[in-house]
Simulated scan of single mutants.
Amino acid sequence: MESKKSLYYLNGTTCVAGGIMIEEKKTPLDLMDDIYSLAYWMTGSEKSASDLLNSVYLNVDIASSEMEIIKNVQNLLF
């Protein structure tokens, strides 16, 4: 009997039944949306969220990794 593996999604990560995790690469637009959502949640202000997003993208370049961008967000928030 052939077993079927089911896929489900958890916080942007594809998970295969059996514990194998496959990480999805986020697009720049996905990352911008995540940063804006986080900033809005933390500040409660659309203007503050937009200002943070603009500041982040002024401090990174096209070659910046996702981790570098996230560290930039942390530095601006804390």
Rank of each mutant, 00 (worst) to 15 (best):
D51E: 12
Q74R: 07
E2V: 00
L7D: 05
Y57P: 11
W41D: 15
K71D: 13
N59R: 12
S6T: 08
T13Y: 00
S48E: 14
L58P: 03
E66C: 09
S50H: 06
Y40G: 04
C15E: 05
M1G: 12
C15Y: 06
T14H: 05
D33P: 04
M1R: 08
Y40C: 05
N72Q: 15
E2S: 14
A17K: 06
W41T: 07
K25W: 00
A39M: 01
K47C: 06
M42G: 13
P28V: 01
E24I: 00
S64D: 03
A49V: 04
T43G: 02
G19N: 04
M32F: 02
T27Y: 14
L77V: 05
S50Y: 12
S50R: 03
A49D: 04
N75G: 10
M1F: 12
M1C: 09
N54Q: 14
E66L: 01
I20F: 08
N59W: 02
P28E: 11
T27W: 06
L31H: 02
E66A: 09
N72W: 03
D34W: 03
L77Q: 10
L7V: 09
V60T: 08
E68F: 01
N75S: 13
V60Q: 05
L31S: 03
G12L: 04
K26A: 11
S6Y: 10
E46K: 10
Y9Q: 15
D61Y: 09
V56F: 04
M32G: 13
M42K: 14
I22G: 09
D61P: 03
S37W: 02
S37T: 12
A63I: 01
N72V: 04
N72C: 11
A49Q: 00
L77E: 08
G12E: 06
G18W: 01
L53H: 00
Y57H: 09
D34L: 08
T27I: 05
M42Y: 12
I20R: 10
K26M: 13
K5M: 05
I62N: 05
K5H: 01
I70D: 02
